Amino acid sequence: MARTVQITFDCADPGATAAFWAEALGYRLQEPPAGFESWDAALDAMGVPPEQRNDASAVLDPDGVGPRIFFQRVPEPKQNKNRLHLDIRSAVGLEGDARMAALEAEAQRLITHGATRLQRFEPALPLDGGHLVMADPEGNEFCLD
């Protein structure tokens, strides 16, 4: 039996981190529960105090194909390099200079949303067409591939 996957990020600011990843992936923020016009209204009804309202957030693929991505507040900061990371496939089908130009353009777009460019790997065919290593606003590494 096949299973679905949810990807979870530990972070200091779930709302901001979710907004970044929604932008990066073309996802949307998860809407409040049915019957509520906003998350504040839903959280009021649930009795969640204001200081806990940024404890979690989630983003969804608008087409319902990709996994839900959940963001949860944790007290400790990021300590080391990720052992798992996401690859954002932003140059599929492109090769050489055209591929690297598309990756650089996407890197610049994401930098305006808080990402940091960490490293560029030139094409090393046949296995690697070139990629960029980036970090989200909280330092979580990801690749533009």
Rank of each mutant, 00 (worst) to 15 (best):
A2M: 12
R3W: 08
T8M: 09
F9W: 11
F9S: 02
D13N: 15
D13G: 05
P14Q: 06
A16T: 14
A16I: 06
T17W: 00
T17I: 12
T17F: 02
F20C: 05
A22G: 03
A24V: 03
L25I: 02
L25M: 10
G26R: 01
Y27S: 02
L29S: 10
L29Y: 01
P33G: 09
P33N: 03
A34Y: 00
S38G: 12
D40G: 12
A42M: 13
A42V: 03
A42H: 11
L43N: 09
D44Y: 06
D44H: 13
A45G: 07
G47Y: 04
V48Q: 05
E51G: 00
E51Q: 13
Q52K: 15
R53N: 09
N54M: 06
N54K: 08
N54C: 13
D55L: 07
A56K: 01
S57I: 05
A58K: 10
D61N: 15
D63C: 09
D63E: 15
D63A: 15
V65F: 08
V65W: 06
R68V: 14
R68M: 14
I69V: 15
F70H: 09
E76G: 06
P77Y: 03
Q79E: 14
Q79N: 08
N80K: 04
L84V: 15
D87I: 08
R89C: 05
R89E: 12
V92C: 02
G93V: 11
G93A: 06
E95A: 14
E95T: 14
E95R: 04
G96E: 07
D97E: 15
R99C: 05
L103M: 09
A107Q: 04
A107Y: 02
Q108H: 11
R109D: 01
R109C: 02
T112A: 14
H113W: 07
L118W: 06
R120E: 13
E122W: 05
A124W: 02
P126Y: 09
D128G: 00
D128A: 04
D128V: 12
G129Y: 03
A135L: 11
P137V: 06
P137K: 05
P137N: 01
G139D: 11
E141A: 13
E141D: 14
F142T: 11
